[in-house]
């Protein structure tokens, strides 16, 4: 069945909404019940990365489609754009949920933390992707330039979110010698909710992005 993965995504997220609130979690000072945010905040970022990776693949395929003087396949351009768009929605959700969690545990909505600033820079890098697209009228040129920039943007995203925060001090779990939840508090009970949540949200995000692609294709006709 073609739509099975959509049902799976909805079922997984539905399960984690219930289990994430009702199942037992480790009792830790400062974090207290907010440890449950792990099930909802972190999957937003996993989904963003998965969708941006999808967008990157479509950009590669666009560039490949123009090989040997063939016409560019502009469908790939619409796919890359739609996936990046939906990825930005998820990154904003991740940012806002993270700010609320930071206020409760670190005492401030925003700190000059490399993880947080890296995320802000990443948002600007992708904002530039959409501005670049909007500034070119010729569809072929826009598709080609946007695809090249998208490759550059993805690499910077990995550097700013995945690498730099790990090289300095950071409050954020998993960075700068600060252990991630996996090291000591992501026990097996939490894994039973966290992994399904991550997969489920990725599937939901993929679904939304595909709907966006189909809408773009219809309006392009």
């Amino acid at each position: 069945m073609k739509n099975l993965w959509k049902i799976l995504g909805a079922a997984l997220v539905g399960y984690t909404l219930i289990a994430g609130l009702l199942f037992d979690v480790p009792r830790l000072v400062i974090l207290n019940e907010t440890i449950r945010n792990l099930y909802f905040h972190v999957p937003m970022w996993f989904t963003m990365i998965a969708l941006l990776a999808g967008s990157l693949v479509y950009s590669f395929r666009l560039l490949r489609s123009g090989d040997q003087g063939r016409l560019l396949d502009l469908n790939r351009d619409r796919q890359a754009k739609a996936f990046a768009e939906v990825a930005m929605i998820f990154s904003l959700l991740g940012l806002f949920t993270g700010m609320i969690w930071a206020k409760a545990t670190w005492g401030a909505y925003w700190t000059a933390d490399p993880k947080l600033n890296g995320t802000a820079v990443t948002l600007l890098i992708y904002a530039a992707y959409f501005i670049l697209r909007g500034s070119i009228d010729d569809a072929e040129k826009r598709a080609r330039l946007a695809a090249v920039y998208n490759v550059f943007a993805f690499v910077l995203m990995i550097v700013f979110i995945g690498i730099l925060p790990r090289m300095t001090d950071s409050l954020h779990p998993g960075n700068g010698g600060n252990p991630a939840f996996g090291n000591y508090d992501l026990d097996n009970r939490m894994r039973m909710v966290f992994y399904p949540a991550a997969l489920g949200w990725i599937l939901i995000g993929w679904w939304i992005a595909q709907l966006r692609v189909r809408l773009e294709n219809l309006s392009a006709q």
């Binding site: 959509k6 909805a10 539905g14 909404l17 609130l21 939901i204 679904w207 939304i208 219809l218």
Partner: peptide
């Protein structure tokens, strides 16, 4: 459990909306 039920309904509603949109787009296609 009341809160869990409320969250469940919110999410079910959003998924139903996605399904509705999916059908509408398929019709247009």
């Amino acid at each position: 459990y009341v809160v869990v039920a409320v969250i469940g309904i919110v999410f079910a509603g959003l998924v139903a909306y996605l399904v509705w949109m999916e059908r509408r787009i398929t019709q247009l296609e």
